[in-house]
């Protein structure tokens, strides 16, 4: 579903990604872990099409299409979803209206009829249950005055409504207490399907206790330095990233 080959990227002139290779098949959940500043979030933003990043080499194929050639909105419409680390507020625009507009844009792109307000509401109510979201949040402005937990739950809720093919979740676990983490994890697990792939970006093992990945990659200094199965995450939790950084240096 997603093939990243030798991806190099610069921000403001300095190279952040030094050749990333990653292949995610439909039905798989991958986790990328790594210390701060290793380029994990940069990778997520490049996949989603955020301005300000220069891809200097390499390519990204999404279901065979050249992802980097597409506009951000077309990527979303084609099925790429980014769960934001820091979702923004949009005052005066209700969550309901926002999400309905988004869903209908995506449906239009896929040649499906648009949903009217009633049908949308039925769908939204069903998906709200996945993350124990209060209906009240639907009528408030997008992320405005939401608590940290509500913001992250809202991201997972949006994912559930938009039903992406590929979900990239950037630190969806950060800032959550243990109960909220479980709720969010439950929502993510409910979204796992044979025809959907997920990429979880996280600092910590704890999310991976609840959402068990098929593969775990460690990114350090703009490169994937080691990949492994789900046990690998536990090993990392125990040993930290330090030893990998050491081996990296030794190899260099």
């Amino acid at each position: 579903m997603l093939e990243i080959e030798n991806l190099h990227a610069k921000v403001e002139g300095s190279e952040i990604l030094h050749g990333i290779d990653l292949r995610i098949n439909a039905g798989e959940v991958h986790a990328i872990m790594g210390p701060n500043g290793s380029g994990k979030s940069t990778l997520a933003k490049i996949l989603a099409g955020r301005e300000g990043y220069d891809v200097t080499a390499g390519k990204v194929l999404f279901e065979g299409q050249d992802l980097l050639a597409m506009t951000p909105e077309d990527r979303a419409r084609a099925g790429v979803f980014l769960g934001f680390q820091y979702p923004v507020e949009i005052p005066g625009v209700s969550n309901m209206y926002f999400l309905k507009t988004a869903l209908n844009e995506i449906r239009k792109y896929r040649g499906l009829p648009e949903l009217d307000a009633m049908d949308f509401l039925v769908l939204a109510r069903e998906k709200m249950k996945l993350v124990d979201m209060d209906e009240d949040l639907m009528n408030r402005a997008v992320n405005e005055g939401f608590s940290g937990g509500e913001i992250k739950r809202n991201e997972v809720f949006q994912m559930a409504v938009l039903e992406p093919r590929l979900a990239v979740l950037d630190e969806t676990d950060s800032g959550l207490d243990i109960d909220a983490l479980k709720t969010v994890a439950r929502g993510i697990n409910a979204m796992r399907r044979d025809d959907r792939a997920m990429l979880l970006i996280t600092h910590y093992q704890r999310l991976l206790n609840h959402v068990v990945p098929d593969k775990v990659h460690v990114m350090i200094d703009g490169q994937v330095v080691r990949s492994g199965g789900k046990e690998f995450a536990l090993e990392l939790e125990e040993k930290g990233y330090g030893w990998l950084e050491e081996t990296e240096k030794a190899r260099a």
Partner: peptide, 17 residues
């Protein structure tokens, strides 16, 4: 960008905001 990432074009996003 947040709107775009949800499938809404930049122009429609500005208008919405």
């Amino acid at each position: 960008f947040y709107c775009q990432q949800r499938g809404i074009s930049a122009e429609a996003a500005v208008s919405m905001i």
